[in-house]
Computed example of a mutant assay.
Amino acid sequence: MKAVVFDDFGPADVLRLDDVPEPELRDSDLLVRNHAAGVNRADIIQRTGGYGRDSFGDSAIMGLEIAGEVIAVGKDVQGFAVGDRVMGIVGGGGYAEQARIDYRMAMPIPQGMDYVRAAGIPEVFVTAHEAALHLGRLDAGESILIHAAAGGVGSAAVQLAHAAGARVFATAGAAKLDRLREFGADVAIDYKADDFARVIERETDGKGVDVIVDFIGAPYFERNLASLGYGGRLIEVGLLGGAKGATLPLDRLLYRHLQIIGTVMKSRPQRVKQAMTQRFRDRWLHAFDDGTLVPVIDSQFVLADAVQAHRRMESSSSVGKIILTM
């Protein structure tokens, strides 16, 4: 089968399409003929060496989410059969014509949804739900600040928070603010022109927000803590701006009863990923049927054009998901 591979870590043009062996079906696996796969920031990190050569017990081929048709099932599989249309998170192997997925990580594709849109759901919506609603414990009537809100996980988090009944603050570049409002943001903040901490202080009468979902890291850390209200929860999902240089104001942490929680999916144990998927599926999968939640697709590229897909992500000009099609 064809798959995107690379020999050495480096820029996008290290990627190439090549022949590789088909994945070996395990007892709890579905073998899926991929029709589409999502591109994620983690793929960039993998390509540039951030994870080393560790496959985390799965495939060394990149790609963390797929949508396609089941062509074989392992002997321990329950609830799925050959011919089913499925989407889900894989531990690697998405950038290929076929992939294996543990059936406990798979979800049925909503009726009437095409494979491209389905491939834009699993990684970002499961991650967003885990960050904002499970770890962040966001509830109706509370408020949340979501950074990098025009990206895949960010746009999913805005939709979920809005659907959960929260007041949503969201940051992005000026050209993307109208899209944030379409996703459900109540207050869209231009992170280049406005200091988000001052906007939060003004809009909340100094009370701060209950939850912050952050992908930036050190450059935002102190202002994030300043923007949290009593009992506030900061969920760190990424470090796009770097990991070093932040100062922790312990007095604010202590007296405001703040919580700082870090989360990453790729290196988590399989049972943890399964629980994350199940939580999202149980609460939200039906919401794609009536349009409450909508996968946001920025662009799509054929598998052979993975280089261009990675360059699109690295340009930071995308809104929503970048998809590879087979």
Rank of each mutant, 00 (worst) to 15 (best):
P11N: 11
A12G: 06
D13G: 08
R16N: 10
P21G: 01
P21Y: 03
S28N: 15
D29H: 15
L30Q: 01
V32Q: 12
V32C: 11
V32D: 15
V32N: 14
N34T: 13
A37L: 01
G38P: 11
V39G: 07
V39E: 05
V39D: 08
N40R: 04
N40W: 02
D43T: 09
D43F: 09
I44K: 12
Q46W: 07
Q46S: 06
Q46T: 05
R47Q: 05
G49C: 02
Y51R: 08
G52N: 08
G52H: 10
G52F: 12
G52A: 03
R53D: 08
D54I: 07
S55T: 09
G57A: 00
D58P: 00
S59R: 07
I61S: 02
G63V: 03
E65L: 06
G68S: 07
V70H: 02
V70M: 00
I71H: 07
G74M: 07
D76L: 09
D76Y: 06
D76R: 15
G79P: 09
F80A: 05
F80I: 05
F80K: 09
F80H: 06
V82S: 00
V82C: 02
G83T: 07
D84S: 10
M87R: 11
V90L: 11
G91E: 01
G92F: 03
G92H: 09
G93D: 03
G94T: 03
G94Q: 11
G94V: 03
Y95G: 08
A96Q: 05
A96K: 13
I101R: 13
D102A: 12
Y103F: 14
Y103H: 15
M105V: 04
M107E: 15
P108T: 07
P108L: 02
P110T: 14
Q111W: 02
Q111P: 05
Q111Y: 05
G112W: 00
G112H: 02
M113Y: 08
D114H: 14
Y115T: 07
R117C: 07
G120T: 03
E123H: 15
V124T: 14
V126R: 14
A128C: 02
A128T: 01
E130C: 05
A132L: 15
H134E: 14
L135I: 04
G136V: 03
L138Y: 05
D139W: 02
A140F: 01
A140D: 13
E142W: 09
I144V: 15
I144Q: 08
I144D: 04
I146P: 06
I146M: 10
A148G: 15
A149H: 09
A150V: 05
